[in-house]
Each structure stands twice: as C-alpha cells, then as structure tokens.
Write a protein that binds this DNA or RNA. Structure first.
Lengths: 339, 339
DNA sequence: CAATCTATCAAAACCGGTTTTGTAAAAGCT
DNA sequence: AGCTTTTACAAAACCGGTTTTGATAGATTG
C-alpha cells in the first residue's frame, strides 16, 4: 500500500493525498476526510524510510555503549534506558543501541553516527570531564542529551542527579555515626559523577574538620572485584578506615565480601555503603545502605529534553533529580568497631 | 557529499559511480580505482536512508521488550543483548530496541514493526509455548531468531541453552546430597524454558523414584519478591522441602532471605540453588550454587543465525549451548537439616 | 466586465541512492 | 571488410514519500 496506489484509488494526485494526510490547509475538508477514511480502510501507512529520505529526519535516536563496560549490566542504567525507550516509543521515535569496541576510535564512531543520517540525536550515558564526545557534538551542532552534568556545556543538554548532595549526605551520616576514618572507593576519575561525589565527600569531611587522607580516595570501574581488591588493601594498611563509601552497590558487595574474608563484620564493626539501590541490595546480608533515585524519571526526562531540541515541543524539564538515602544494615556506629 | 557530487567531480555518471562502488563487473578497473580513491579522499559515504529506500533493506534489526518486565534488568539477558549488538555492529547492522506497554496489543505491535519496513528481522527474547509472535512471524514469512526453542517451529530460527539438562543436573545433585523433598520455584509457566526445566526436574525425580508433590512446583516472574513469598509459603507448609531450586539467581536471593527470616540457615539446613550466575551470586552469603552459560556466545549465535537468513552468509551455527553447574555454598546435604 | 484573488488540486522536482535499459566504441570472428 | 560481441559507460526509471511550482475554476473586486 503506497501513497501512489492510495491516490489512484481515490482519483487524486500523490501530492494532494500527502498534503491531506499531513494537515496542510490547501486541501478541501471533504477531500481530506475521504483521504483519511480511505487510508484507514486500506491500512495505508507511510513508509518511514521514504519519509526519512524526503524529510531528512530519521525519527531515530542513538546511544553508544562501550562494549567492555558493565554499564549496560548496571541495573540502574538499564532502567534508565528502558524508560527512555518507552517514552520515545510513545512519541513514535526509535532508539538504536550500538556498541563500541576497545580498538575503535571513539570519536570516529560518533562522527560516523552523526554523519550517517541514521539518527537525529545522540544520548550520552556517563559524561566525562572534558568529554571529547561533547566537544565533537557541539562542533557539529548535533543534538544530544547527557546523563551527567558537565560545567561549561549548554544547560539545555543535561539531566543529572545530585551526586554531590548524595555523597555529602552519606558522608555526613558516617560522621554522625562517629566515623572519622572514612574511605571512598569512587568510580573512574574521568567521570563527572566521580568528581561531584568526591566534592560531596570532601565537603562533609571538611565541615566536620576531619583529616582527609588522600590514600582513602580510590578510583576504579564499577566492578565487585575492584572493590574487593581495594578494600583488602585499605583494611590491611597501617591506617584502616572504619567506614567505606562505595560508588555503587556492586562495589559495596565486593567490599562486604572482602571485609568478611578479613574477619570483619560489615554493619557491625565496619561500615559500608553503596549507591543505586540495585535489586539485590535489600536482600543481601547485611542489606546495603545506599542511595536511590528515580531511574525511570531520569530516562523520561532525557527523552523529553531531546524532543524539545528536535521538535517544537516544550515539555517542562526537570534537569536535576533528587536522591534519597536508604539506611539499611551495612553501615553502623564507629564505636562498634572497638568491640 | 552525495553520489551526484562525487560523480560530477569525477566526470562520470551517478550510475557508473554507484556500480563502481558496489563491485559490479561492467566497470573498468582504472575507473573503479579512481572512484574508490575519490570517495576516500572526499569522505563520501552512501546515505543509508537512500540506500534503504532503493534496496528495500534496512540493515536494521529489532527487539521488543515488554516494558514491565525485568528482562532487561536481568544481567544474563543484558549480556546476551550486548553481545548481539556487538556482532551486528561489526557487520554494519543496527539494532533497534523498542518497548511494549501493558495496554498495547502485542500482536499489533509486532505487526506494525513487520510492515513498517524499519527492520529486516526481529529477535525474540523469551519464547513462549504456542507463541503467537512466532505464529505471526511465520505467517508473514518475516525473518526472526528466538532465544528459546519451541517444538514445531523451524529449527533454523532458534538458539537455546539446554535448560532441561541444567535442571536435571541441579536436581540430581540435590538428590545425591540426600534430598528427597525438592521444591522448584520455576519461571512463568508460559515460557518454553520453564517447561524444559520442569522436564529436567521431573526426569531426575522420577529416575530417583521420588514422590513428586505438585505443590512443590511453583511458577512466577523472575523477581526476588515472588521467590520470597513463595519460599515463605513452602517452608511454612505441612511438608516443607529441604531443597529449593529457583529459576534464577534473583529468586535464589529472595529464597535465601526468606529462609533466613524464618530461622533457617541456607547452605546449612536448607539448600537453595539459582540459575544464570548473576554478578552478585558469588559475593552474597551463602554464595549461590547456580548454572552458568556463555551469554556472549548466545548473543553472537543469534546474530549469526539472523545474518544467515538475511544474507548469503553461511556462518556455522551452534544452536544449543552447554550449561555448567557452579557449585557454591547455598546448597548442602539433606542430613544437615536435621541438625 | 475585465482584472485580481482565492481555493483546490495536479504536475513536477527532489531526497540520494540502485537498477534497468540504452548506446557508442572497441574487439572478435569469418 | 562486414557482422556480431563485448566492454564501459550514460541515461532514465525507480524506491515512496515531501515540497515547490503550476494551473484552473469560481469568487471577489474596482
């Protein structure tokens, strides 16, 4: 069922049918109704590919995942992605998910996607400091939306949660529990979220007048193993912390396992916290004290922000999203460590 | 940079340039080289949209996720998807990820996707018994590949792991540990994998001459909460099992939590097993005895199978994938329950 | 009443490719 | 030499839409 056949069936020209279907004004009311009715009856649907070619718009958005990363496997991110995809589907937009390999030049992959015409815009998952991807996208004036705020780039392009506040709160809680030796197994240093979290941590430490040991601030990819190894190092050092903040709940799990292996009792004589409220976090022992945020709201806002850029929609955007601390059993009073 | 401009630059016609780039034989060797060189220098890349329209092929594949499902959040499935996407990317294919809402008619959504011309083929994630989606796809002779074997449909369209064998093995192990009262919290009954697993369970039970209580075979969606509630029921019944097989590691975690809440000691006086080897499984206490399979191989084989259907490629396909039992600490001897 | 508008539709160009058909020159054959 | 093939390219049609331009009839206007 093409527009040509529909036009022939109606005894009209292609152009009139097209204009009728697309709400142009120079088409008689009766004619439009006839066209709409016939389209309905014959089950006509405009071929998206032809539409793309003619209009230059693909109604498709892209997101590129580093293939080696566990990003996709992170439950929080997966939820964001589902919610993003959901909202886009409602607006008749498609989402293409691509991967990038270690051996590929990231900039080139983004450039290819930009110039391919395959997508109208790109989502960026974890913003990095001085993110070359953003520089590239800005240079090409290509629409993008990031999950992660970066200073200096357009405010119109970011959705983020208040990472600083979250870790300020978490740190403050540890302090209020009597901890003075608080380590922080942070995410990779190049991520903006790592910087924000570190600031939150530092702010709380400074406000409390605590000494900040640079050895206590570590960076690693969000994997259990990394946290496990780092915790081992921390706890076996001359000056072991009494509380360890982890960058996510996976790491918290690794840290817990490590502490237990060393004879500590997490939640009793060593405090451990996570981030993200992963599905397992309330079921493990001890249940992980963590930070939760509305993942599906974040995904939806990212989609809305993108649509505002691409269309004349004016969705109200909530750029910053609140986090909530979920206090469970993996952290504890500092004095307990002297049991 | 369009083919027209490239042709003008070269002083050739569009058609010759197109044929040169696409390896047709009626083009002089020298000419072809000139064209290739110029394309390289001027950075010419054929517009995919135009190519799609002309060729009728989109080089795009689709996968539809139920929005309410936790499928996407399942680490095993996420890995399959990443690996799928990776292989497709290498072959210059795109992957569109769409969601479907509760209120939408699933058949209609699939039909729309089929007729839209947006995708050349569809991946199906969890095959169901008498799967209407497969019926539809077969009827339209639309290329598809499933993760999950269903009797009666073309063998050319399935990749699967040996679910039956996996649960046969798991059950057998429980029996060899002295268990006679083995419950099975299975996945939703409509999934083919649930049927296969049940068969494996039943086979092992029958071979051992054990009584099979129908109350011990339960079905639910793969969520911690479900396993938690069901375990509670099981353990508080007149005839509590001494071993509980769970459909995945999330459920195992729920079952463990439930047993602990009831005063049992999983891995000591109640045996619990999972499936999927999720990331958390080796770090929780007790570490979960589970089934592992090569998720990235599955994803890759699905992609290869699809390409075999769409192109004249002849990748060798491994339809069935081995599973491996990982014995850890969440299951135990039956006699221990009498401690 | 002739001139100008306006409403409504058709024709044609275009998006950027692929594919079919057409054609001139070179090569092969008897 | 004269005919048929082959080679190598160009022209044009096509994929299925959108958009620009064109045309006709009826209504409006001075």
């Amino acid at each position: 069922m093409s527009i040509k056949k529909l036009a022939e069936y109606l005894g009209l020209s292609k152009s009139t049918v097209s204009r009728a279907l697309n709400g142009y004004l120079d088409v008689n009311k009766d004619t439009r109704e006839k066209v709409l009715k016939a389209a309905q009856e014959l089950g006509y649907k405009a071929n998206p590919t032809a539409k793309r070619l003619a209009s230059g718009k693909s109604r498709t958005l892209g997101i590129i995942l580093p293939s080696d990363s566990n990003m996709f496997v992170s439950p929080a991110f997966a939820k964001v992605l589902v919610s993003l995809s959901e909202f886009l589907a409602q607006q008749d937009y498609q989402l293409i998910v691509t991967t990038i390999f270690d051996w590929q030049d990231e900039t080139q992959v983004y450039l290819d996607l930009i110039t391919s015409g395959l997508v109208d815009g790109i989502f960026i998952a974890r913003t990095r400091c001085n993110d070359l991807r953003l520089t590239l996208l800005e240079k090409h004036r290509f629409p993008y939306v990031c999950f992660g705020f970066e200073e200096g780039f357009s405010k119109e392009s970011f959705i983020d949660v208040d990472n600083q506040q979250a870790f300020y709160q978490l740190t403050q809680r540890q302090i209020s529990l009597g901890h003075t030796q608080i380590a922080f197994i942070n995410a990779s240093a190049e991520l903006t979220l790592s910087q924000a979290r570190k600031e939150g941590y530092l702010r709380a430490m400074k406000e409390a007048g605590l000494v900040i040991e640079s050895d206590w601030i570590l960076h690693a990819e969000l994997k259990q193993e990394n946290a496990l190894l780092m915790t081992e190092q921390l706890m076996q050092s001359n000056n072991p912390p009494t509380s360890i903040l982890c960058a996510d709940d996976s790491m918290a799990l690794g840290a817990i396992a490590s502490c237990e292996a060393l004879g500590y009792k997490p939640g009793i004589n060593i405090a451990i916290t996570g981030y993200g409220d992963y599905q397992h976090s309330r079921y493990v022992k001890p249940a992980i004290t963590t930070i939760k945020y509305d993942t599906s709201a974040v995904g939806k806002e990212m989609a809305k922000l993108m649509l505002n850029k691409l269309e004349n929609t004016a969705f109200h955007i909530q750029n910053w999203h609140q986090t909530e601390m979920l206090v469970r059993q993996s952290d504890c009073h500092a004095r307990a460590s002297k049991i």
